[in-house]
Computed example of a mutant assay.
Amino acid sequence: MCAAVTGGPAAADPAALPTTATDAIARMVDLSRQSEQLNQQSLTARADLDAKLALQREADDKLAASTAVADAARAEVRRFQPMIDRTAVAAYTGVRTNSMFAVLSSGSPQQLLDKMSTLDVLSQQTADTVRQFKQAADAATAAESVTRAAADAARAATAAADAVRADVDRKLQDLGVATTQVVEAWGALSARDKSTLAGSPFPPGFDRDSLLAGLVPGSGTSALAAALTRVGDPYVWGATGPDKFDCSGLVQWAFKQVGKNVPRTSSAQAGYGTPVAKGDLQPGDVVLFYPDISHVGIYAGNGMMVHASTFGVPVAVSPINTTPYHSARRY
């Protein structure tokens, strides 16, 4: 079983310790389910953290880029500032640069033309300087606004990543407690109880070779064929192969063998591919279980699936009707 729901495992009640082999196995299965739920929760939280860290890096990159743009814009403003200051001082002190002053102060027609030409150039240069200064100032203001927004986004992304990181840590701690309980419960079982819990890798009458021979090559059926080669491998929380698996890890590994990069968790796998009605299931479809989509396997036809079930139970082929059905997807 695998899960992606909230809530941690309940601590074992000493007063409710199993007194029979059946009770011992039932307790083991119950603890296993709780630990597998936490396993999927921690995997989902880790994926969420990775996404948040990616957003944080993106926000930091945008902040650095916008800061560089703002610095360059401010430098451009500083470049024009002395010229603007001189123009302002000249205007304030009444420096005469008009045409009438040129006429009155000219000693000859040629001198008048020269002065008029110079005044035109000075006037145009002043206008250009003012225009460029305004452009630089506007650019600096806009860049600073972008930088402030980028800084806010970077701080928000960091806070979000920190919150998810704390959630991951809590879930991993809970998972550690849960798996310890499971291993202790499993260790208390007799060899016969362990054998009963593990069961048979194939149901009565199931012929893997005949099934494989009848499969038409394709992404789904080829993934099924890959998964069937792992029958007998142990269940391990958080494992993705090649010789130990949790439920969603087996599905991910099997489809990876045929070139499909499917999501890591059972809840994410429920959104991959296209939906398939239960009545239209074909070998190679991905089947999901429990209301919280807490388990996943690959349909093997005739009401069977191959899956990594739970701790103490190797990868096996089992009926799908022994687990509460949720939905199916075709990859």
Rank of each mutant, 00 (worst) to 15 (best):
P283N: 04
A191I: 10
M304L: 12
V313M: 15
Q132F: 12
S210W: 03
G107S: 11
T22P: 02
T323C: 04
G273Q: 13
R96G: 00
G249K: 06
R230G: 02
L113E: 10
A159Q: 14
R165D: 14
A160Q: 13
D138I: 00
L122N: 15
V315I: 10
A198Q: 04
Q269L: 08
P9R: 13
N39T: 13
P314C: 08
H326S: 14
S267F: 12
G284S: 02
K171Y: 14
A136G: 11
A154R: 00
A54S: 08
L119C: 06
A3R: 13
G301C: 10
Q124W: 12
A178T: 00
S294W: 04
M116L: 15
S123M: 07
L288I: 11
G301A: 09
I25F: 05
I293Y: 10
G259L: 07
A178G: 02
Q282R: 15
G218C: 01
M305V: 02
N261K: 14
R78P: 00
Y299L: 04
T87A: 15
N321T: 11
V236I: 11
L31E: 05
L215F: 01
P109Y: 10
L211Q: 04
S108C: 06
E144T: 03
G312N: 03
A54R: 07
N98W: 09
P14N: 06
D30S: 08
